[in-house]
Amino acid sequence: MKVSVIIPVFNEEDNIPFLVEELNSFFQKEKRFSTEILFVNDGSTDETYQKLKGARHLFYSYKILSFSRNFGSHAALRAGILKAEGDYITFMYADLQDPLSLISRMYDQVIANGIDICWAFRNSSASAGTEKLFSRAYAGLMRKYAVPNFPKKGFDIVLFSKKVKTCLDKNLENNSSVFIQILSLGFKQTSITYDKRGRKHGKSKWTLSKKIKLLIDSFVAFSFAPIRLVSIIGFVFFLVGIIWTAIIIVRKLIYDDLASGWPALLSILLVGFGITNISLGIIAEYLWRTLDASRRRPAFIIDEVTEKLESTEKPVRVLKDVK
């Protein structure tokens, strides 16, 4: 059996020596399966690519897929899946927060149970308070409005079979979460739990803007809740408007004690236009993604592939302009 491990990297020059050292140490001892590592260089502007090429990769075959520019971590994972040749595929990350022993544990689960997907759910995390808060809020919203079986504490790691890879390659989605796509496929699944470690070197590239984009992409791609929200808001304000109109008419006919004025009118206009703009913004998100999908633009562009198939004693092959 062969396991393909996809590792997206973006400006991780400080982590590369430690990453390769840990990979060598782990796979020197792991004999149950052969290993293919796919490093996906997501448009790094530092020495990440050079350090990957110059490192001594001793106990696994590897490929370095270099993007023409930064496309994002989910695009990097999809590129790795497309180029992976293993019987099973999993993800790891250059910050070393997830122990490599997860690969063996997940592999044992899928082999022992004859299933297609094994998740590694976070039992605890060394992330900062704001990151934990975002993660819990995101998980809660996804469980309620999009994917009912979304784990409460989130996940970053999964191992899956070639059957799942085939489905993902046939449905290569832009502006979407590859994890939720896998979660929603419906194949037989199991899970393990683990404690996430702290980042050893460098700073996280998971910025606030990327988190917000993931939240929007997840809802637009996997949930109709935003559209339903627009309908509910419109219905509620329609009822409020009918009730308020009836009150004005009754009081005018019976008491004639309501003075007309611009403050009330201005408030109504501000609230009304605000809700209208929010609703149009939500609809525009769907329309933009429909337009983006209709263009059929690539989710990523691989500029160069560096690969070494067996050992570091053999020459490295560099392929240019790979589609």
Rank of each mutant, 00 (worst) to 15 (best):
R32C: 08
D42P: 02
K53L: 13
E85M: 08
H74F: 12
G86H: 01
D303P: 05
L102R: 05
E285D: 13
S4C: 05
M92D: 09
G54S: 08
F33V: 12
L183T: 02
V158G: 01
S209F: 04
I216G: 01
K196H: 15
A126H: 14
Y255P: 00
N70Y: 07
D95V: 05
Q28R: 15
L280M: 13
A221V: 04
V3F: 04
E173N: 15
R295N: 07
A139D: 00
D257E: 08
I89N: 01
L82S: 13
S311N: 10
F18I: 10
S104F: 05
T290I: 15
F237Q: 08
L270V: 15
I278P: 03
E22T: 08
G140T: 12
P226Y: 06
R69C: 10
W262N: 09
S73P: 08
Y255S: 14
D116L: 04
L82P: 01
A94T: 03
G274H: 06
L65D: 00
L319Y: 10
I192S: 03
G241A: 12
S34Q: 09
S218M: 05
E131A: 12
S73C: 10
G80Q: 02
I302A: 00
N171G: 06
E12P: 07
G272T: 09
L253N: 07
I233N: 07
S101M: 08
F219W: 02
Y145N: 05
F187D: 11
A128E: 15
K63V: 04
W244C: 10
R228L: 15
G281Y: 04
G281Q: 02
T35L: 13
I182Q: 01
D87V: 06
M92L: 10
F26E: 05
I248C: 09
K153R: 14
E313H: 09
A293L: 08
L159Q: 01
I103Q: 05
E13V: 02
V250N: 02
I302W: 00
Y60P: 01
I249F: 15
R199A: 03
D257H: 11
G241P: 02
E36K: 09
D169L: 11
S124D: 15
R295Q: 08
I6K: 00
T45K: 14
H57R: 07
K308G: 11
D303R: 10
V230A: 02
M106K: 06
D303W: 06
R105F: 04
D321Y: 15
R289N: 11
S218A: 15
R317I: 06
K213V: 06
G234K: 13
L287I: 15
G72W: 00
G129T: 13
F219A: 02
T130P: 01
I248Q: 09
V236G: 03
R56A: 14
V240K: 12
K29C: 07
N24G: 06
K196I: 09
S311Y: 09
I6M: 02
Q181W: 07
D169N: 14
P226K: 04
L77R: 10
F237R: 08
F238K: 14
V316P: 02
I283Q: 08
R78G: 00
L58G: 00
K188H: 10
L133Q: 10
D87C: 06
T312K: 07
K170L: 13
I16C: 04
F237E: 09
Q97S: 09
S204I: 04
Q181A: 15
S223C: 04
Y286T: 07
M92I: 02
S104D: 14
T166G: 03
D195V: 14
T130N: 13
